[in-house]
Amino acid sequence: MGQKSASSSAATKVSSFVLLIIFVTLAVALAALVLAVQAYSIGNDVVAVYLLFIGFIGVALSTYVLFQTRQRMMRLRIETPPITTTIECKKCGFKNVREFQRGDYIFKEVEPCQKCNEKMLITAIYREVREKGKTSFPY
């Protein structure tokens, strides 16, 4: 069908500078956590608590930003759901379901039937949507 969705575009690219900042923050945060363990082991409890605090905040922030960037990239794609074409033979009732092809339209006469050699007709073109997380609605 040739319906290729979004190819590489400037809008889907993530700035390498932003990525660098995210990974540097993550590295510093992880280092703070390691240092916190060390400080605790030598009995410096107050410093350990501060380092632990900084470490957790850093890890949480950098993973959140990284996740958000990924989400944004995923959101920036135009979804192309598969379109189905149903072809029927009016004489023998033979049915063929295939992917939509350019030029198809409802009530178009297409190739002859495999069974009775009668001309077949496109009777349906539609897309099926699977509702994500559809919950029961009491109202």
């Binding site: 759901p81 379109i83 349906a124 073109i125 539609y126 897309r127 099926e128 949507v129």
Partner: peptide
């Protein structure tokens, strides 16, 4: 305005 859904068909 998008391709016809099965429910609509």
């Amino acid at each position: 305005v998008s391709p016809m859904r099965k429910e609509v068909f």
